[in-house]
Structure formats: structure tokens, C-alpha cells
Computed example of a mutant assay.
Amino acid sequence: MTSSLESIQLPHLPASLPIHVALYRDVQNAPFLRQQLISGNADFEYAFIDASSVLSRTHALSAVFRAVNDYLNERLKSRNVHSEIVFSFSPTNNIADSFRKFGISDSTKDLLVVKVSTAPEITHESVAAHLAQSVEGTPAPFNDETLSRIADITKIKKAYKLGSLNVAPAGQTNGANDSGKKLLENSLLGAIAIRGAT
């Protein structure tokens, strides 16, 4: 299986901390992956995010930045930087709730995987090889086009309590929807930033 793992250097974070991101569609083994997380298997220390709750690349990377920044400043509220990434998507301070809304579930079909290089042995090659062995799904590019096909706008608006915001469902592309989506994205980024400030 070819890897679509992307290694990203986020601005304002040390060059020694690249972020590795992969997106998978039609995942067949979500219950297995979730079980590895629950059992604390160190080989599976990833942020496993249900991609249907991710609006855009910017939305995802904002949550990653917030978590890594908290990791660097020793402000983690959860077990490690990877669980903190899932928590950082949440507009509230309820960790269990954030895992329910944004983390992998047994029924997850579209999966966003994030790994932070917190140790020298965590490289693009090692992460790509491990994910190729571990995730039974179809690699997809981590871009707005793919995410817009996956994103469940209703679910996202509910998670962020933005029910009144007018955004058309995925697949309906027109000028009005683009501006609605931008407004939604800005609201999500604001929620991530504000929760971090409290």
C-alpha cells in the first residue's frame, strides 16, 4: 500500500518537531486501532481523529499547533501530546467528551492520523511503515478537497454549538456555500483558540 503520509513543519514551532499526517478512507479496522489506544499500547501513540469531524486542513493544523504548543510549554491537560491533539479540537474542557466527538470510534470510516516527532527515532519513514502495517484503509491526500467530501457539517456544527450558522452540506458548491464554510472555519478556529486561553 502506498503511503500518503505528509510531514509538515508548522510555523512558530521548532524544526526538531515535524508533524506527520495521514488521511485514510474506508478504514476497515477502526475497532482494533481504538483498542490499541485504550490499552495504552505505546506503538500506537497517535492522534486518531474521526475525519468526519474535521472541516479543513487549517482546522486540523490549528488543533495540532495548540496541542504541540501546550506540550512544549508543559501545559498538557491529557496523557500525552497525541491525546492532547484530539482534545484540542474540542471547544470545551471536557476531555472524555472531546474523545467522543472527535476521536476514533468503532464505526469510524474516515481517519485522520497525526504523529508528532517527540523523539529522534520517530521519522517520516518509521511512521509511514508502521501505518502501512497497521491501518486497513485507503490512503487519501490530506487536503481541503478530500476533507470537504468527508466532513459532516451537521455533526461539526453540533459539536461546536454553531447550529444557527448557515452552511450547505458537502457536495453543494457555490459562492454562498464557500463564504458560509469560511465563516464556519473561522468560528471553529476561534473556539479552539479561546478554549486554550481559559
Rank of each mutant, 00 (worst) to 15 (best):
L165Q: 06
G171N: 06
N69Y: 14
N69D: 14
I122Y: 01
T58A: 13
H130P: 10
Q133Y: 12
T198C: 06
F44W: 13
T108I: 03
A197D: 12
R195Y: 04
D50Y: 03
G175N: 15
K158H: 13
R75Q: 15
N166K: 15
F142H: 00
P11I: 10
L17S: 05
A22W: 07
L165W: 09
N166D: 15
K155Q: 13
I122C: 03
H124E: 09
S78K: 06
K182V: 03
E121K: 05
S117A: 13
S88V: 00
S107W: 10
D50G: 06
N143I: 06
A47L: 11
V64M: 05
G180S: 08
F142N: 02
S98H: 06
D152H: 11
R34D: 04
S179W: 14
V135T: 04
A129V: 13
G137M: 12
D97M: 10
T118S: 11
S52V: 15
F48L: 12
D70Y: 07
P31E: 03
I192N: 01
V68K: 08
R195L: 01
L184E: 05
N143A: 02
L61Q: 00
G103Q: 05
I95Q: 03
S39Y: 12
A191E: 05
E74L: 12
L112K: 00
Q28P: 02
T2C: 10
T108L: 02
L76C: 01
E145P: 01
A51T: 01
Y24W: 05
L76D: 05
A140Q: 01
Q35C: 05
H82A: 08
L76Q: 08
P91Y: 04
P14W: 12
E121Q: 14
P120R: 04
T173H: 13
G190H: 11
S88W: 00
A60I: 07
G175R: 11
